[in-house]
Amino acid sequence: MKKTEKKLTIHKERCKGCQICVLYCPKKALSIGEKLNKLGYRYVVLSKEDACTACGICAEMCPDVVIEVWRDNE
């Protein structure tokens, strides 16, 4: 079976580190990183890339449109 192509775009400069995406990610693929962005927040990173299924829940829940999710056309 062909593996689905997927992509998460994380706009880290507008992330405020609220962790709502981290909480609701069904696969626990996201976490808050160590680095600060220009706003002064520790921003979200995709720490378990393989676990991500590109379901889009993180993006739906994010109040700041930090995450955009793409999947290839099967």
């Binding site: 192509e5 992509k7 706009h11 507008r14 590109a54 379901c55 889009g56 993006a59 739906e60 109040p63 700041d64 449109v65 995450i67 955009e68 999710v69 793409w70 999947r71 290839d72 056309n73």
Partner: peptide
């Protein structure tokens, strides 16, 4: 690639205060 979630078109600037 097809968007599962992308920024709504009418949302011109998502850098909320």
């Amino acid at each position: 690639m097809k968007a599962v979630y992308k920024k709504p078109e009418v949302l011109k600037n998502p850098c909320f205060h």
